[in-house]
Amino acid sequence: MAVLSCENLCLAYENKIAVSGLSFSLEAGEYLCIVGENGSGKSTLIKALLGLKQPKSGRISLSEGVKHTEIGYLPQQTPAQKDFPASVWEVVLSGCLNAKGIISFYTRKDRQRAMENLEKLGISDLKNACYRELSGGQQQRVLLARALCATRKMLLLDEPVTGLDPIATAEFYSLIRDLNKKDGVTVIMVSHDLHAAIENADKILQLRCEPLYYGSAAGYAESEPGKKLLGGDGNACHH
């Protein structure tokens, strides 16, 4: 059953087209990586998937039982968060707000849920720690726990390993893989890390305003656009 499908989607800013002719569908429990150069429309697509941007034409449909607000989102970190005084607990708990109306006090159920997610990600000992004093990898785990408070079904991660060291990156990828394989969470990840994408994801979507490739991760390395981007990566390393 498709949890998410886009039909002939076109996204635009005023007169500038950011994404066009995009059609794909994602099954429940799949792991999709969206790759592409800067300015290829990835961020715009994310905004549209989150319901923050209306499509110019075409449509995005989520399967029944999933609302836009139930997509667990892991945004890129903002500079303001670097010196933000907040405890891990406060940050994680704020993920529970999406199910609430105007009156938004936390219930015992919310606290339980937040605690479960802290334990699941192995950071329950950091509950009372100060968010800004954590390492990059720990901060990403905290934000992931917050995203899990908002959803059990679908995670949308925007370049989640930016700025992490290699060990933290590997740990983060394995965490996501576990959530995907063991808990059946559908994962959509925007990434610049092509090799990890091929290794971890089921499917890959390459964008350059139009979809250049959509299909299995295994077939991507053999495809024309895949070879080009992977090759381009190689060249970049020589500089």
């Binding site: 319901g51 836009h68 997509i71 989102y73 945004p75 936390y106 908002a150």
Partner: peptide, 16 residues
């Protein structure tokens, strides 16, 4: 609680 969410991370707050 909402003010905290919007202050800490407006993008996430909007998305949820």
């Amino acid at each position: 609680n909402r003010i905290f969410a919007v202050t800490f991370d407006e993008t996430f707050a909007r998305a949820t």
